[in-house]
Design a protein around this nucleic acid. Sequence first.
DNA 1: CTGATATGTTGCAGACGCAAACAATCCCTC
DNA 2: GAGGGATTGTTTGCGTCTGCAACATATCAG
Lengths: 398, 398
Amino acid sequence: MDTSDKRSVRVRNLSALLTAVHRTGGASRAALTLATTLNRSTVGALVGELAELGLVVETQPAESGGVGRPSPVVVPADGLVVAALVPEADAVTVALVGLGGRILARRRIARDAPPRAEELPALAAATLDDLRREAGGPRILTLGVAVPGLVRASDGLVRLAPHLGWRDAPLGSMLEKACDVPVLLANDATLGAIAESVFGAARGHADAVYLNGGSSGIGGGILAGGVPLTGSAGYAGEFGHTHVADDDKRDAAGVPGTLESEVTRESLLRVLGLGAVDADALEAALVASADPVVLAEVDRQLDYVATTVGTVVNILNPQVLVLGGFLAALDAARPGRLTGLLRDRAMAVPLEALEVRRAELGSDLLVIGAAELALGPILAEPNAVAGRDALRAGRLRR
Amino acid sequence: MDTSDKRSVRVRNLSALLTAVHRTGGASRAALTLATTLNRSTVGALVGELAELGLVVETQPAESGGVGRPSPVVVPADGLVVAALVPEADAVTVALVGLGGRILARRRIARDAPPRAEELPALAAATLDDLRREAGGPRILTLGVAVPGLVRASDGLVRLAPHLGWRDAPLGSMLEKACDVPVLLANDATLGAIAESVFGAARGHADAVYLNGGSSGIGGGILAGGVPLTGSAGYAGEFGHTHVADDDKRDAAGVPGTLESEVTRESLLRVLGLGAVDADALEAALVASADPVVLAEVDRQLDYVATTVGTVVNILNPQVLVLGGFLAALDAARPGRLTGLLRDRAMAVPLEALEVRRAELGSDLLVIGAAELALGPILAEPNAVAGRDALRAGRLRR
DNA sequence: CTGATATGTTGCAGACGCAAACAATCCCTC
DNA sequence: GAGGGATTGTTTGCGTCTGCAACATATCAG
């Protein structure tokens, strides 16, 4: 039951206000008053409390824009930040991110082999110390981790991360011990969806689906009613394993005829005759190519993508579909083809309002996503920043 | 921004309390205090207000169960009800439902041809008058309609109801004029999902998927985080049109190789050699049959069902999958087969905790679902019962 | 009949947001 | 450049709501 005593009112209003500051990156008190529909005096008091907590600072009014008394601008403070950790098969990225989504410091540590879960805590702790010094010694409130695999929402256990070779890795508790901050973990594609919805292509849309193609496979995330859809245990969004063809090709999870077994980055690189290149180079090559073999492969893959997207449209009726990674490149190589195919794969009515867009956040995506995860408890309860134990409670849940 | 002035606290607490009374069907004040985590005195005041509004009545304490002062039992009042309207291809059902989900009066009007949208308002108004007399003249607060088709959430326009032959029917506004109550409309399978989640097989689970097989096709509904997932325009849950096979059989929506084109009630009736029978008879015949042709057809259909369910598990990670209509019969005819097939169609990890159940509400399903829709605004804002215009606002949205 | 237990009831205090009155600051116009 | 209008911050008082604590009430166990 969603009851509320009187104290929760303050918490909710602080949360709404801080969220507004975070999402806009800073706004005048007058604008915040408008955005929250609260009273001037109330906003004044709330901003005062947030400032006292060290979460925001009030700066001089911007250059005068109109008539009337200038309104001080409320911007995120620098002294409190969250950390982001993104372990991938070929690199580990660590970053410090402030409110407003500003990346204050980041370091990408290239790796020959996938990082083992056991070595991450020490690596993360040392790197965070460095970054903290670089950034002028802010206090790190929480640490968010974008895991390329299945993360159990209840306790943050990494059940399976095929491309890292992890199984049932208690990364969260190990990191908490090593870094001495509350740690939150979630699936990387789910966090990508959140990042794109807060700062990227799905900004302002309550119902969006993010579909990402990476070297490790295809994943995604769902926003339903403005809230990330996690599923009962946190495993939602595995679009790569939807059925698209009646064949026996099996994907990494052993499921036959799935999107991920038919649509791969490797096939594209092969027909292009390319080796290991980054996302931009792959897209440039795809767009430039007139080779019929390449076109055929692009069209073949787009056909399967359309099948999955059709299913997504029928089931979830999103307003925005955001394509990331090489899926965006596929769409760019054959403009309009995907949306054309969809007319035969999805019901006409839910297709009417669908917008297909490409991801906007590029290489910042997962850092922003992990930071967004880490910011969750702070935005939800700005009051509780003092006692960090209070932040340890919920992981990605609603 | 989800801010809240002080008055909304009262509203939220009243809502939580009334929702608890509704879902339990009646509870002692002590139990409500426990359920809401509110204070004894607060619950007392809130119950008093709900009683004054005519929504609940306090009855004598139940036969003494333990030590201590007996706690009066709070039960839904009879004087305020909602109406449910369920138009189907072969019948129109009208009912009055009280808080607590009790059906006070119902009438099923059999039809030879599907009802036209234009004739429904008069029919509904007349039948409601009759039922109201039968039930002792309660006040009807709202009317909920379970539409077998796509309903635009923003204004309740029926975009498409193939089995009724409707397209862009403004049923909501017509009904409001004829019946003089706020009208809320939603897709029937979505409402079935809600009904099963409140009073049926998915009770107590926040993440559930309902999959229904009817004579008109396959539909469903999603509960994510305890909230019905509507999608951006209200069209979510069309599982019948997910891709399951690489063939050209097209379903009613013109999409080829979908669940609905492969899995049909008619095929089952055909192999069984049956004519028009009800759900129970179909299931009995399926379970009893040892005909290899029947078994083969059942297995063929279950195979396709497994493909869609696998996709659902991968994408949504529900904890409970509720099967309704002839899909429940298919599962009953071959116990364990569906769950066995799933091991090859879904990822192992999200499959771990999945429970497959059958729907429990039977023929009451859509009446309860429509009533639940109609009760939504009342449960959300018990305060506003007096001014019925306040109820007219939101349709199915969260 | 008495004590223990559980719960309703009452009065009071704390917290909170809102409204209104007042002050500050900027733009615009004459 | 002085005054008016407009917008917004600030302060104060008030109403509402919930929690708490003390007291009252009703049942059970013996």
